[in-house]
Design a protein around this nucleic acid. Structure first.
Lengths: 163, 163
DNA sequence: TGCGTTTTATTGTTGCAACAAATATCGTGT
DNA sequence: ACACGATATTTGTTGCAACAATAAAACGCA
């Protein structure tokens, strides 16, 4: 078996003692590498990965709005501070807020037409970026990758109760 | 084929249009899930993932020190600001700095005995955490996972030149 | 020796993320 | 109506990350 890529990249003199460690670090590195190009694309349009994610979620509900809690649930990366995230969208005119009349505790955040348009204009370039990024991998490989990633994170809830 | 886990988790009503997107998001989510337990462990000892990573790199060179640039190269996640990262270690007494006599531009950062001891004390619990976290996966699956992650990030350099 | 270029590290600034505490509203039972 | 606990959001604070600008030293070369 060839020497692991990570071991060379990190200039380690010895292989990993635990394959689990090598696996986790590889996922971290891949996540970072895969995130970068998308992040740059978003940045060109004044969005961070988180704000883009929120805006996209809001498009899904458009023209209705969503409470903070629902937005939080749908985020790819869990962030506990939806208020300030949507603040930034509101200040850019990409979203607007309104207190619900049924339950005055909840605040509905709704994309503006401008917000929907912006996120729409990113669909195509984002798709191109993603496809180009993984163009060297077969459909089977991607499918396997997805399956393994799902499995890797699936039992996290067990972890909690065992701690 | 069963409905994708991510689609349910994100409460999406439609499947992903691009398998590449589903793959990238799954890697992001897995990375986050896998990072969490380790992060908590480090935090209990006053370390962030980054400062732990630096300390571990310094242990690899112990009792010698390393220049910032070398530390940066060996980091799992690339951070451009080694100075303030090592600052925190120095202020905790886990590392110390000294200007090189050969090249007075470079600053060697070296772990202290205390630093080496701390990182050593984390080896066992970290290993246990990692093993428990992935205990439901076979060695073959982990090996496949490693291979796919390496492949997924390998051609990132092509991306750059094509941009 | 002196000049310009490159390398190495540090600092300034800004913005974001994490966590905890506080505020407002709702539903329920009395 | 009132008190209580639960829920939804906001705010305060602290620390970290990203990026650009600066400073210091080395190197090459006339």
């Amino acid at each position: 078996m060839a020497k692991s890529l990570l071991v060379s990249e990190l200039k380690q003199t010895k292989p990993f003692r635990l394959i689990e460690e090598e696996a986790v670090l590889n996922v971290q590195r891949a996540a970072e590498a895969l995130r970068r190009p998308t992040e740059l694309l978003m940045k060109e349009h004044g969005l961070s990965p988180s704000t883009y994610n929120v805006l996209r979620i809001l498009r899904g509900a458009y023209p209705e709005g969503l409470p903070c809690h629902d937005i939080s649930e749908r985020m790819v990366s869990h962030v506990p501070d939806i208020t300030r995230l949507t603040d930034r969208l509101v200040s850019k005119g990409l979203a607007e807020r309104e207190r619900s009349s049924e339950d005055r505790r909840v605040v509905l955040t709704r994309a503006t037409a401008e917000g929907v348009e912006l996120v729409g204009s990113l669909d195509a370039p984002l798709g191109e970026t993603l496809k180009a990024q993984l163009s060297h991998m077969t459909r089977d490989e991607l499918q396997t990758m997805i399956g393994l990633m799902e499995k890797a994170r699936a039992p996290q809830s067990d972890q909690e109760s065992a701690g």
